[in-house]
Design a protein around this nucleic acid. Structure first.
Lengths: 331, 331
DNA sequence: GTGAAAGCGCTAACAA
DNA sequence: TTGTTAGCGCTTTCAC
């Protein structure tokens, strides 16, 4: 059916090993021979069988991607970035969705790891110890999480929060509410931390209202508590939460930004379409995916660097000011 | 490093073939032997090497998924469904995104086809002839598209449009505008057709305003033309377009549903969050993905059925009434 | 610079 | 019911 390396060899009048070399190590073969092989390859439409190659080289030419929820626009964009970059390197991507189940993480990675060269693990909820255990048998790159010794790409959440707070303080806000995401989430912790620092540096005050699901419903649920804090501005864990906030505030007749300014994080497509359009900290999502792939591929090429865990990517957010933030109301 | 079938065989005191059988065709091996093998497998943490197995069986245990745009919530949900169902069958999924480039479709499928048992192809823009050519060398299941002889899963667009029109006519609307998606899109054609039939059956009239990008921007661009038709209601190609419509109408001070009722298609998460919340025809997205996987796997198991192209899934939409539709304005 | 031979880990005849 | 043999398609020593 499909041509094998022997077919090519026969047609080119050389041995299979020469064909193999012509394809993988072109320098090692005579230019004329190489041309003859190339012609045969062309004529037969030959494509090396990756499984067979992998069997001997130990490399599959495939990477795995594990995300909590593909339907979450943040991860969808990230996946898009990973996929695009991987294709650029002629590497295929297995995608697995944990359905937000932290318990499924380790198992999925383990299952995947048999079939791939390495795994990009996004926003894992597993403990540092569990992650270390996983990394024992698999080459792993973390996204949205840092763990000692493991390479990864993460956003500078502190800096993003600083930008948001600076914007709000400049608008006259002094008391800023904070709606956190899942308590165990690395991003929640770092954003909360960054917020606290920024608020302190700018002599404002922070009113945390606790932890909520990182969803529209989470935002709806948090809104009344935000209002009760008396804050004139609120920073939400992410855009989905911010949009939920917007909805509940609207139905309570609270004007945004007239009575309350709202800031999200991520800049998902939906944020532009919200009413009022959402001010948010834009996170380069596809970029994170691309960098993760580069990191992973680099580790696979020189496994020594991996042990040092020296490979890291840091990405910066950018404040996008839209209509959901405005001057603090005068009392 | 990782245990091979020979290690297991040695430990269990049997031959490799017996181990192989114990794993793939348990009935063919003695219960006691089977137990001994199972114990050895357990002890060694043995997992068969899929590449090696694939080399000989010709099956990779992997399927491909090609979508136009992962960042589009519709395809993200579909991918989620595919992925979940595939894992249920212990099949891995390669995901590829064409970035809405119809020219990339065929090439991607071809590239993928070398590494997978079959491909789920979503909303392809390729011609029937091109699709037939692709299906020549690859087992393919179409989603959101029917083509003669090719198996696939599609929505009953006619029925969905009938529901939308019935709803609008009951509200007193007599002139209904229609904002189409890409002209070459199968869904656009079928929705337009269904709309025309439904409108005719209910003695209303249709005012098509042409073809637009299936995006928020497309909806923004179409809004003024919709208004110019004098229609009191509009059906949009999908929710993204409907939300774009909403935005532009709002900024023009046109009340929805006071002056104009708006209906979308898909029921993406964003639709619930729109203001006013969007009335839409809900399409079961993950379900489509699941069915596509079942179809594909069934074809792989009995390739004869494939030739007949008798395998089809049909999915029905369901009208979800929210706040963007209301009684037609009195003149 | 090129070919012959061996073998990656597994399964599928074929014998026993 | 089980073991032996051969070989999937490829790469990689090792000779030449």
């Amino acid at each position: 059916m499909t041509a094998t390396i022997r077919d090519v060899a026969r047609l080119a009048g050389v041995s299979p090993s020469t064909v193999s070399r012509a394809l993988s190590l072109p320098e090692m073969v005579n230019a004329t021979t190489r041309a003859r092989v190339a012609a045969a390859v062309e004529q037969l439409g030959y494509e090396p069988n990756r499984a067979a190659r992998g069997l001997i080289t130990g490399r599959t030419g495939t990477i795995g991607l594990v995300v909590p929820d593909l339907a979450n626009p943040f991860f969808a964009s990230l996946t898009k970035g990973v996929q695009a970059r991987a294709r650029h390197h002629d590497v295929a991507v297995f995608v697995a969705d944990t359905d937000e189940d932290p318990a499924a993480e380790a198992g999925l990675v383990r299952a995947l790891s048999k079939q791939v060269d390495g795994v990009v693990l996004c926003s894992p909820r597993a403990s540092d110890e569990e992650l270390a255990a996983i990394a024992q048998n698999t080459t792993v790159v973390l996204v949205n999480r840092t763990a000692v010794g493991l390479p990864g790409v993460a956003y500078d959440n502190e800096d993003g929060m600083r930008q948001a707070v600076a914007h709000l303080v400049a608008l006259g806000h002094r008391r800023i509410a904070w709606v956190g995401g899942p308590a165990t989430s690395w991003s929640t912790q770092h954003r909360g931390f960054g917020l606290r620092n920024a608020v302190e540096a700018l002599r404002a005050e922070l009113a945390p209202v606790g932890n909520f699901a990182p969803t529209y419903e989470g935002g709806m649920a948090a809104a009344d508590q935000v209002v009760a804090t008396g804050a004139t501005a609120v920073v939400a864990y992410n855009d989905l939460v911010a949009i939920g906030l917007l909805a509940r505030l609207h139905s309570r007749g609270i004007s945004v930004p007239g009575d309350l300014s709202v800031v999200g994080v991520d800049d998902i497509a939906m944020s532009r379409m919200a009413r009022p359009a959402l001010t948010t900290v834009r996170l380069p999502k596809q970029e994170a995916g691309r960098i993760a792939v580069e990191l992973l591929l680099a580790m696979l090429d020189e496994p020594d660097g991996a042990a040092e865990g020296s490979k890291h990517g840091e990405l910066h957010g950018e404040l996008i000011v839209r209509d959901s933030t405005g001057p603090a109301p005068q009392k």
